[in-house]
C-alpha cells in the first residue's frame, strides 16, 4: 500500500493549521469575545450613566475624560488576560485529556512544534482580541469624545500601549501555557491558572508594600504578570519605563516557555 506523501509536507505548518482549525471550532473563543465586548459596553454605559448623574456643565468634561481612559484601557476593560487564561486552560488541557496530543506525537509530530504551534495560535488569538477591543473602544471614544485633540502623538502613544500590552499578554499567555503543559488536563490547568492569576496579584501587592516601606519604590514592574496594568495606566511613560515594560515580559516569556517546553519534551505522554 502506498503511504501518502506525508513526510515531505511541512509538519509545523500542518500543526499550526490543525491548531487554528481546532481553535476556530471552540465555542469558548466566541463566548470570550462576546464577554469581552460586553465588558467594554458595561464600562461605556457606566461612564455615560455617571455623566448623566452629574451636573450639566461638567457632563462633557467627564465624558471626554473617560473617553481617554476607555481608549487606552482597551485591554484591561475587556479583561483579555483572564479570558485568554481560560481559553488556554481549555484548549491545551483538553488536547491532553482527550488524547489528541498523544495522537499527534504517535504520528511523528515534533513536540517542540506542537508546543510552539499552540503558543502561536494563542498569540494570534490575543492579537485578534486586542484589535477587536481597540476598534470597539475607539468607536465608543469617538461617540463620547476625547479629552483633547487626537493628535499623532496620542496615536503614537496608543500604538505604544498596544505594542507593550501585546508583549505583556504574550508573556502571561506563555506562563499559562506552561501551566497547562505541566498540569495536562483542562480542569487542573484552569484551576491552577486562575488560582495563580489571583494569587500573584495578592502576593505582589504585599511584596511591593513591604519594599515601598523600606524605601524601594516602583518595583512592581519587575514582578510577573504586572506589566499589563502599567502599560495601560501610564500613557506618558519615559523611555526607560517603556524598555522595562518591553523586556521584563520577554524575560518571563523566555523562562516560562523554556520550563514548559523542557517538561513537555522530557515527560512521557499518557
Amino acid at each position: 500500500m502506498k503511504t501518502n506523501d506525508l513526510n515531505s509536507s511541512n509538519s509545523f505548518a500542518n500543526t499550526l493549521k490543525a491548531d487554528f482549525y481546532k481553535l476556530g471550532k471552540m465555542k469558548s473563543v466566541y463566548i470570550a469575545a462576546a464577554i469581552m465586548f460586553g465588558l467594554i459596553l458595561i464600562t461605556f454605559v457606566s461612564v455615560v450613566a455617571l455623566a448623566h448623574l452629574s451636573d450639566a456643565d461638567s457632563q462633557s468634561d467627564i465624558l471626554s475624560l473617560f473617553g481617554s481612559s476607555i481608549l487606552f484601557g482597551f485591554v484591561k476593560s475587556a479583561n483579555i488576560e483572564l479570558l485568554v487564561t481560560i481559553i488556554i486552560g481549555i484548549f491545551v488541557g483538553k488536547e491532553f485529556s482527550n488524547g489528541t496530543v498523544r495522537l499527534s506525537v504517535a504520528r511523528g509530530a515534533d513536540r517542540l512544534q506542537i508546543y510552539f504551534s499552540k503558543l502561536i495560535s494563542i498569540i494570534v488569538l490575543i492579537f485578534g482580541y486586542m484589535v477587536g477591543s481597540l476598534l470597539v473602544c475607539g468607536i465608543l471614544t469617538a461617540i463620547i469624545g476625547y479629552s483633547e485633540p487626537f493628535t499623532s502623538l496620542i496615536f503614537a502613544r496608543l500604538m505604544r500601549t498596544f505594542g507593550l500590552s501585546f508583549v505583556a499578554l504574550i508573556a502571561s499567555a506563555s506562563i499559562y501555557m506552561m501551566i497547562a503543559f505541566l498540569t495536562r488536563s483542562s480542569g487542573a490547568a484552569l484551576g491552577a491558572s486562575i488560582g495563580i492569576y489571583i494569587l500573584i496579584e495578592i502576593v505582589v501587592s504585599i511584596i511591593v508594600l513591604i519594599l515601598e516601606s523600606k524605601g524601594l519604590n516602583d518595583t512592581v514592574i519587575y514582578f510577573p504578570l504586572q506589566q499589563l496594568s502599567l502599560c495601560v495606566s501610564d500613557q506618558e511613560m519615559e523611555v526607560a519605563t517603556a524598555m522595562k515594560l518591553l523586556f521584563m515580559p520577554i524575560g518571563y516569556m523566555a523562562v516560562s516557555t523554556l520550563v514548559g517546553l523542557l517538561t513537555f519534551l522530557k515527560r512521557d505522554i499518557k
Binding site: 506525508l6 509536507s9 511541512n10 500542518n14 493549521k17 490543525a18 481546532k22 499527534s104 504520528r107 509530530a109
Partner: peptide, 8 residues
Amino acid sequence: AAALQFGC
C-alpha cells in the same frame, strides 16, 4: 482536524 495535523 487530524488530517490537517497529519498533512493529508
